[in-house]
């Protein structure tokens, strides 16, 4: 009952803020939502891995970088559009992720957390330096016409392509919700995430489930890697900032809370754009990220103590 009331209040506030923004600073809402979709679509797969495999995958952004490079060169070679590469890249990245999981991360699952962090960080360095050795630090960008698609309402002209990321984030979120709550494999994954010992005694192969979840997350990372190429230029270190950003969004949402990642992203995206829209607050946009994180985590721990 209390939860429902809180959700209703949150929804009412969000709608009110949205209406104010549409009338006052429509670009804040437009670009804020676009940024939110982009953040969330990258963070959700990392949230899945953290929620179920309990691994902070510090090579998350690098996996996406690898997927983007693979997409770029496949598309260049075949004269293909990156949008057509989404599913093939997802499959290839999933297989690659599964292999990497079996060869490395699996070995560290019982190790102390610090070892796991160092290992995935090591993977991140190996990936970005490997790409650096092969392709150097030079940046690549695919020239695509549709990414400049535009909409004009009155005096206001804005880009519409980035709304794709809002769609992707929603597909990822609802897709995963469906998978985790409606399919047997998904329920088994949830069970493993909540209690690996309990899962083993009901006959679930825990390590295999971890591998499946990791591969699934990487399939999403791969799909996002192909889409990332439409928006961004790529270079060896392009992925690493997104690891940190994703991790912070997950921390804001709370581990295992995938819809929460989307809400956290919206909060972050809209706030950032709001601050950037005014001369006096422009330079605060980067700091607000950390303020929000600290605020949300403090609020949650305070609430936790009260409960």
């Amino acid at each position: 009952m209390a939860i429902q009331r809180r959700t209703a209040i949150a929804a009412a506030i969000s709608i009110a803020v949205a209406i104010v923004l549409i009338l006052w600073k429509p670009t804040v809402l437009i670009y804020g939502l676009q940024a939110a979709g982009f953040y969330a679509a990258i963070a959700i797969p990392m949230g899945l891995v953290l929620g179920i495999v309990h691994i902070v995958n510090l090579s998350h952004g690098e996996f996406m970088m690898l997927a983007s490079y693979a997409t770029y060169f496949a598309c260049k070679a075949l004269g293909m559009d990156p949008l057509l590469a989404i599913i093939p890249t997802a499959i290839v990245t999933a297989i690659f992720g599964w292999v990497v999981f079996q060869l490395t991360i699996r070995r560290a699952l019982k190790a102390p957390e610090l070892n796991q962090l160092i290992m995935t960080y090591g993977l991140a360095i190996a990936f970005s330096q490997g790409i650096n050795l092969i392709f150097s630090t030079k940046t690549y960008k695919m020239p695509l016409d549709y990414v400049t698609s535009s909409m004009t309402i009155g005096d206001l002209s804005f880009g519409t392509w980035s709304f794709v990321f809002v769609g992707v984030a929603l597909v990822f979120m609802f897709g995963l919700q469906f998978f985790l709550t409606k399919t047997t494999t998904g329920k088994a994954a949830m069970a493993v995430g909540q209690n690996p010992k309990g899962a083993a005694i009901v006959g679930i192969n825990v390590y295999r489930t971890y591998g499946i979840v990791f591969a699934l997350a990487l399939a999403l990372v791969g799909a996002m890697g192909a889409l990332f190429l439409t928006k961004s230029a790529i270079f060896p270190s392009v992925g690493s900032p997104f690891t940190m950003k994703s991790f912070c969004l997950i921390a804001m949402a709370g581990v295992g809370n995938i819809p929460g990642i989307l809400s956290a992203s919206v909060l972050l995206g809209v706030t950032e754009q709001f601050l950037r829209a005014f001369r006096g607050t422009r330079d605060w946009a980067e700091i607000v990220f950390f303020i929000l994180i600290i605020g949300v985590i403090l609020a949650r721990s305070y609430k936790g103590r009260k409960a």
């Binding site: 329920k187 949830m190 069970a191 209690n195 309990g198 009901v202």
Partner: peptide, 14 residues
């Protein structure tokens, strides 16, 4: 060793 965040029925089903 139950799955605390899942329904009773899902626990049984699993």
């Amino acid at each position: 060793e139950l799955f605390p965040g899942m329904s009773v029925e899902d626990n049984l089903m699993l």
